[in-house]
Amino acid sequence: MLTLVSHHLCPYVQRASIALDEKGVRFELTYIDLKAKPDWFLKISPLGKVPLLQVPQQSGETVLFESSVIAEYVEESQAGPKLHPEDALERARHRGWMEFGSSILSDLWGFETAQDRETYEQKRQAVAGKLATMEAALGEGPYFAGTQFSLVDAVFAPIFRYFDLFDTLADHGIFDGLDRVGAWRKALAERPSVKAAVTPDYGERLMTFLREHDAYLLRAGQA
């Protein structure tokens, strides 16, 4: 059986988990503490990051790293519904938007770990601006490619999940005027694979993370 090496809060792990689940692939999860990475993990992870996908073979085991690589492998090697378009040009377009989603995660990291108002506001505007770009790129929905769930959706679902907590902490306004993005967010949140990609205590763990980083977000609602 495939094994996905994970961390409870990692959005990149979530996208791999969602892809596996959408393809109907059975897999095991192994969680590690990224603050105290075990030796066995460091030996098989070239970048020292999650996710990893351990793929058993007759000759031993192959370990894949990087979430986009894992998602592509799952799409190409497993049965189940297609998560990429058949057309080469459209497939390339989807890959571009997946990378765009990764750039939002970089800004989102700055947003959630900002310790002062200025940095918080800079990152808030960066995330809002990129989601406004997505608003213009979306069609009628409910998913990125219409009625067909795709790997682009698997990338954006973990982004939107952050705001299930963030919305309760501050009136950040990131989704203001983004009706299509808001509807997309809602549709993804209802997807079983998205719900299953985190443990029930995800929100508590994320709140602990914010406290450990003295996040301005915790005080933004009082400003």
Rank of each mutant, 00 (worst) to 15 (best):
D167E: 12
A170I: 03
S106H: 12
S68A: 15
T119E: 14
W97F: 15
T147V: 12
S68N: 11
K37S: 09
E75K: 08
L105Y: 12
G173E: 09
G129M: 00
G96W: 04
P142W: 03
D39F: 00
H84R: 15
P158Y: 02
L89E: 12
G141S: 10
P51A: 03
F166T: 08
V152Q: 07
T119N: 12
Q115R: 15
A170Q: 01
M98P: 02
I159K: 02
L64H: 00
Q58K: 13
G129C: 07
A114I: 01
G110H: 11
E118I: 03
F160K: 06
F163T: 07
E86S: 14
K82L: 14
R180S: 06
S59K: 11
Q57C: 13
A126T: 03
M134S: 07
F163D: 06
L64R: 03
I174C: 13
L42P: 07
K37A: 06
F100E: 07
V181S: 04
D171F: 03
E99Y: 08
L105H: 12
G60Y: 04
F160Y: 15
E86I: 10
S103A: 13
A170D: 10
G110N: 11
A145S: 11
I104G: 05
G110A: 08
V55T: 10
E99R: 04
Q57E: 14
Q148R: 13
V50H: 07
V74F: 02
Q115Y: 06
K37V: 05
F144L: 10
P142C: 01
E99C: 10
P38I: 01
E61D: 01
S59H: 12
Q78F: 09
A36I: 03
L47R: 11
S77K: 11
D39E: 15
A92P: 04
S68W: 07
G173V: 10
F144H: 05
L42R: 13
S103I: 05
D153E: 09
P142Q: 05
E61Y: 02
